[in-house]
Simulated scan of single mutants.
Amino acid sequence: MIDQKIINRIQTSLSQGETKEAIYRTLLSEGQSLENIQQAFVLATREDKKEEAQKRVIKIIVVIGAILIGAGIFSFVAANWQVMDKWLKVVIIVASMIVSYSAGWYLKEKRGLIKTGTALILLGAIIYGAGIFLVAQIFHIRANWPDGFILWMIGVILITFAIDEFSLFALAIPLGLIAIIAHPFDIFTSSIANSFLLTSSFLLLAATIITFISGALIYKRIPEKFKDLY
């Protein structure tokens, strides 16, 4: 029977970045048998995998919940959208975004509810993106629609750095790809007199530069064990 203390010790040592070889040497020097250490490693890694699987399931459920809440809010607003005043619409969009970001930050930083807080921050990022297109529709802003995805991506990157929530960068990447793929191919060959196309060109260039700089900074700041994921 393997002592649970040994299993816990192995898990703690691994989480602190110690190598298996170092843990083996330490336990062997304390009189533990090689067979017991090997069995303890098997049990420790098995428990870690089970815990990671549970965390992934919880994270997926929380994210889906945030998306469903956002969809419910948008459905309610959409049902009454036509009868609302323009500025009331803007207030609803901005207020929803601020409440979502604030609640997410509070739960994540002050209450330690990391997954719930992150989900609310993700919801805020979704509201921000939807708000860009809704505001453009409300005030009949003439622009290329991929520009909205560029602005959305830039906003997500900024909030990523503001709260050190690097998982949001996974949202920024597809937004940038959509903008690049969907942008008209003649945008760079169009006349400079076309101010909207010129604006789009600058936005696309800015988005490209920001993406590369953000990627480099994030790669430097994230923990070593997560670098392979990014």
Rank of each mutant, 00 (worst) to 15 (best):
I141Q: 02
M97G: 06
R56I: 08
I180G: 00
Q16P: 01
S167M: 00
T208C: 12
T208A: 15
K59V: 07
S96H: 05
A78T: 09
L168S: 02
G65K: 03
F196D: 08
I132E: 03
A22T: 08
D147T: 06
E21L: 11
A22D: 08
F202T: 05
I141K: 06
A78N: 13
A170Y: 15
G112N: 08
S75P: 07
I210M: 09
M153L: 07
S75R: 15
A66K: 01
V63D: 02
A44T: 03
A44K: 09
L122D: 02
A79N: 14
I126D: 03
K115Y: 14
S167P: 00
A170P: 00
L123A: 01
S167K: 11
I192R: 09
S200Q: 07
Q32M: 15
G129R: 10
P174Y: 14
L217F: 10
D164P: 07
P174F: 14
H140W: 14
I173N: 04
F166Q: 08
S191Q: 06
I180S: 06
L120Q: 05
D48C: 10
F139S: 10
A193Q: 12
A119N: 11
L27A: 04
L177H: 01
G70T: 03
L113Q: 14
K59D: 00
K59E: 05
S167L: 01
I61E: 04
P184L: 02
Y101K: 10
A79Q: 15
G148I: 03
L168H: 02
Q4Y: 10
I23W: 08
G124F: 04
E109D: 03
I180C: 01
Y24H: 08
T19C: 05
S201R: 15
K20M: 13
K49Y: 09
D147Q: 00
Q4S: 12
A207W: 07
W81Y: 10
Q38P: 07
I138W: 14
K50Y: 05
V91A: 13
S201T: 09
A136P: 00
F212K: 14
K220M: 12
F185H: 13
F161R: 13
L123I: 04
F196A: 05
I114Y: 12
I138H: 14
S13R: 14
S29M: 12
R221S: 06
I58P: 00
A207T: 02
M153Q: 10
K225L: 10
Y219A: 04
D186E: 04
S96D: 04
L203G: 01
L198Q: 09
G17N: 03
G129I: 06
I61R: 12
K49F: 11
T12Q: 09
L171H: 05
G176L: 05
E224T: 06
I64W: 05
I64K: 00
T118R: 12
K115T: 09
A53P: 01
I121Y: 03
I141F: 11
S29D: 07
L34H: 05
I159P: 04
G117H: 13
S13D: 07
